[in-house]
């Protein structure tokens, strides 16, 4: 495991932990611009199905993606905990991701992330590039480029 290779002074990255379905996912905080409450999403005809539409974020039109639909889960259930995480990406600009709940912010070093499961049979494994441990729960780390990039080409 990586822990033996890097012990001291390793880079520690903060992740925002969100709940999607029954699982917890981590998003690198450096790409997160903002977290907003659920608001009216305007449908964009002919957009990919996992893009429910766009929102008005302080005068900018920002596309919003459903992480659930993207990963092949059931459609989003909008509750009072539903949030839209706004990512600011170099290539794609602002993109929102719909999540069920925002839990906390954790800090993980590379040694605390298990990178070995990439070849897992798990269906959404292509969108995650590691599993971190936070307390006794597991957090799948999103591969931002994989989850967003696909349509941006």
């Amino acid at each position: 495991m990586a822990a033996e290779l890097e012990t001291l002074d390793e880079e520690r990255i903060q992740y925002i932990v969100v709940k999607i379905g029954s699982e917890q996912y981590g998003l690198d905080i450096s790409v997160v611009d903002n977290i907003v409450r659920m608001q009216k999403i305007t449908r964009v005809p002919k957009a990919p199905s996992y893009y429910p539409g766009v929102i008005n974020l302080r005068g900018e039109v920002v596309p919003v993606m459903s992480a659930r639909l993207k990963m092949g889960l059931d459609e989003d259930e909008i509750t009072k905990n539903t949030r839209i995480i706004i990512l600011r990406l170099e290539l794609q600009g602002l993109v929102g991701i719909l999540v069920d709940e925002v839990k906390e912010v954790i800090t993980l070093g590379e040694s605390e992330i298990d990178r070995s499961n990439q070849s897992s049979q798990n269906k959404d494994a292509t969108y995650i590039n590691g599993i971190g441990k936070s307390g006794d729960s597991l957090v799948s780390i999103f591969d931002i480029n994989a989850i967003i990039d696909e349509v941006a080409v």
Binding site: V44, P45, P48, V54, Q92, A152
Partner: peptide, 16 residues
């Protein structure tokens, strides 16, 4: 509409 859903021929953009 942002780059991720820009491949849309019928919709040329959005307005607020």
């Amino acid at each position: 509409l942002g780059k991720v859903i820009d491949n849309n021929k019928i919709i040329s953009g959005a307005t607020i």
